[in-house]
Design a protein around this nucleic acid. Structure first.
Length: 693
RNA sequence: GGGCCAGUAGCUCAGUUGGUUAGAGCAGGGGACUCAUAAUCCCUUUGUCGCGGGUUCGAGUCCUGCCUGGCCUACCA
């Protein structure tokens, strides 16, 4: 087989957040593919990095009162720790905030300039004066110019679906400072993508670079179809600069302007390769300017646009190789629902690892991942039963039911007759390999499990546990176990891209490390067999529950913190009060009616001798109705200022004897207490004695 | 609003260029075994293939309308 030279990337994790199980769909998918290629003997390298630039990082650093570089260094360490936990084996992990990347961005930029693709335009954008920054759409909220629904985001209305620019919003507010932004005009640099239309048309629509539905999507949505009646659609100019302040790289020939994060992020793929090349004494051009080297990107469907139009355009203009293939996957849903941070279903990688085995998730994802863009559902019931039934029950069971019988004698010296099982399975290897190659891991897993379903009956029929009882059948017993362990090993080789840990343990068990796909083609004979140790634990429901609960608790805490700190709507109302005092259980109208609330006028108010918190109020319900009430509002109100005003009181509250006298009711107020007490008052016109309904 | 994709047994999915009575795993039911992590093995129930039209000798597979769901809709990371 010819050795292929393959460079692989996954989308760059953004340095503003923890890795969760949704991200891991892609990272595990990529890792499996890379491990598969390496197992096949290809020269395959996984180049990866953190994506570090943009407004979000800048804002976060500001909020936390530290530098962007601190924020991204911390994220980088956390990300890499999580990836190791999930056995994701990249060859280099860089950062888009690196010298290599800055230099490469400059070179690519120069090429694009030289190709005459750059033009300047003035852009009106909202500017937050207090924060001193231009506002991206998602940092603006206001009233929809179409339907006048308040509280809408900067780019479209969730109610009427209108799209608009933030500058069109009525009464816009910055979500960063809660202040009203002003419109400022600034010079932006654009890439005229339309000049590359013909090239992109060709590249996307031919040559199998994209999944068919993706090619189709691009044609329908952006490129148009030159053969149709409407003809080709022009591609819009791509705004690739941001005025200062912006966390990123300043554009050398346009001081005060920075490259938009989506310009420098994909160049990070090249920069990471460059770092690796320097460490390993290789040439970057061998990978990125070489027709022989393949380049494969794995991404989620949300960033299709960037990777299938901008990125090939940039590469083309800068004279780099184009992607061989962009592999696009769908999103993760949890128990059939969209992942939600608020509901705690965006399980963090680190939370998962505290409770569950990474191999289980790797297998589960593999068993569900196809070559299409379908969403993948993480259903915990299925997860548990699939991993337990397939891996523990069927695959690992082969070893655990046979290894101990040959612990002392090892594998037979010649491979015994197994009725053709091994050869059959060796043959199936090609189909399994093709499935891996095409990213149809679900198919590969199905084929592998079919083999396991044939191996277990073999053991069943051979009855090694009965052979063991008869010493004269020792050879037969060894042969049966040799077959069982070889069939097991063959399965593990096929599974090793998905389950590297199992492969390693199998290598130890049979004293022959698993290093190559071709090992599946010939049986292993004559080696010692080590003492069998559990290779994989069953998933316990309680561990899944524990993870879910921990994640829920994390989510609640995060939401609380967010609501407490950030202005959540245009009035800047915090969510904290609802958190401090959550809603009580639902009540009926009958329950409510039991409480007789009345408008009352404060006719007298005075300090109480010796009381630290109380004021003594005399309330009038009109006519002769007077009530004496002791209220804990001394810290918040001066008695003389209360006299004359109207309040709301609970008029049928059972009188209560207090230290300083009888209290015949309660005045209504909000707030946590102390100085923060806010009495309720009716609007003007209310009359003392009126009931509140 | 516009677009892309999908809709097959309770669940997760296979169904090659349209071709015989639509399949697998899991779950459910029955039995066997006891080497194995209550693991394994054998047998077994279940479907108006989203709905309605159309093309065809023949459609889950092609065309069309509708319904439902997911996603995208460019200065959003």
């Amino acid at each position: 087989m010819n050795q292929r030279k393959i460079l692989v990337t996954a989308a760059l994790p953004y340095a503003n957040g923890a890795v969760h199980l949704g991200h891991l769909v892609e990272y595990i998918q990529t890792d499996i593919w890379v491990r598969f290629q390496k197992l096949r003997g290809h020269n395959c390298k996984f180049m990866w990095a953190d994506d570090t630039h943009g407004t979000a990082i800048m804002i976060r650093a500001r909020k936390e009162g530290r530098s962007e570089t601190e924020v991204i260094a911390e994220a980088n360490a956390e990300h890499q720790r999580d990836f190791q936990g999930f056995q994701i084996a990249y060859d280099n992990y860089g950062s888009t905030h690196s010298e290599e990347n800055q230099k490469l961005c400059g070179e690519v930029w120069q090429s694009i300039r030289d190709a005459g693709l750059v033009k300047e335009k003035d852009v009106d954008q909202l500017f937050d004066v207090e924060q001193g920054t231009f506002l991206a759409d998602r940092f603006v909220t206001g009233t929809c110019p179409e339907c006048h629904e308040p509280g809408q985001a900067g780019d479209n209305c969730s109610k009427c679906g209108a799209t608009y620019s933030p500058a069109e919003l009525i009464d816009p507010l910055s979500t960063l400072s809660g202040t009203k932004p002003e419109i400022r005009s600034a010079k932006h640099l654009f890439i005229e993508l339309e000049q590359l239309h013909g090239f992109l048309q060709d590249w996307t629509q031919s040559g199998d670079h994209l999944q068919p539905e993706v090619a189709n999507y691009l044609k329908g949505h952006f490129l148009g179809d030159p053969d149709s009646e409407e003809g080709a659609k022009p591609l819009r100019d791509w705004d690739i600069s941001r005025p200062a302040p912006y966390f990123g790289f300043e554009i050398p020939d346009s001081p005060g302007n920075f490259w938009y994060v989506w310009f420098d992020a994909p160049i990070g793929y090249i920069a990471s390769t460059q770092q690796w090349c320097e460490k390993n004494d290789q040439s970057l051009d061998d990978w990125w300017k070489n027709d022989v080297a393949e380049i494969h990107h794995f991404i989620g469907k949300d960033i299709t646009y960037f990777h299938t139009l901008f990125w090939p355009g940039m590469l083309k203009a800068a004279g780099y190789s184009l992607p061989t293939k962009v592999h696009i996957h769908g999103f993760l849903t949890v128990n059939g629902r969209k992942m939600s941070k608020r509901e705690g279903t965006a399980f963090k990688a680190s939370t998962y690892l505290k409770h569950l085995d990474p191999s289980a998730l790797r297998y589960y994802y593999a068993s569900k991942l196809g070559a299409r863009l379908d969403d993948l559902d993480l259903n915990f019931e299925e997860f548990t039963s699939k991993v337990n039934a397939d891996l523990v029950g069927k695959v690992v069971n082969l070893a655990s039911r046979s290894a101990k019988f040959v612990k002392n004698v090892g594998l037979s010296v010649t491979y015994p007759d197994d009725g053709g099982l091994f050869q059959q399975a060796a043959k199936a290897g090609d189909e399994i390999a093709a499935a891996y190659e095409n990213c149809e891991y679900n198919k590969a897993m199905r084929l592998i499990l079919e083999l396991a379903d044939r191996a277990n009956p073999f053991v069943e029929n051979a009855e090694p546990w009965n052979l063991k009882k008869d010493e004269s059948k020792a050879n037969e017993l060894q042969d049966v176990c040799t077959v069982a362990l070889n069939l097991f090993r063959q399965l593990v080789i096929y599974l090793s891209p998905v389950l590297p840990e199992l492969a390693e343990k199998t290598g130890v068990l049979l004293n022959d490390p698993i290093e190559s796909w071709d090992q599946s083609k010939s049986p292993l004979t004559g080696t010692d067999v080590s003492k069998f140790k559990h290779m994989m634990k069953r998933i316990e429901e309680k561990d899944v529950k524990a993870m879910e609960e921990e994640s829920k608790a994390e989510a609640d805490a995060t939401v609380a913190a967010e609501q407490a700190s950030a202005a959540s709507d245009q009035y800047g109302d915090s969510g904290q009060p609802m958190i401090d005092e959550p809603l009580t259980e639902e009540c009926t109208i009958d329950d409510f009616v039991k409480v007789d609330l009345r408008v009352a006028r404060v006719v007298n108010a005075e300090h109480v001798e010796g009381a630290r918190k109380l004021l003594k109020l005399t309330l009038s319900l009109g006519g002769e109705h007077r009530r004496q009430v002791f209220a804990g509002i001394k810290a918040a109100y001066e008695p003389e200022k209360l006299i004359g005003r109207q309040v709301v009181m609970v008029a049928n509250l059972k009188p209560r004897q207090m230290k300083f006298g009888l209290s015949e009711g309660m005045v209504c107020a909000s707030g946590p207490g102390g100085e923060e007490v806010f009495l309720l008052s009716p609007d003007e016109g209310a009359k003392p004695g009126q009931r509140v309904h």
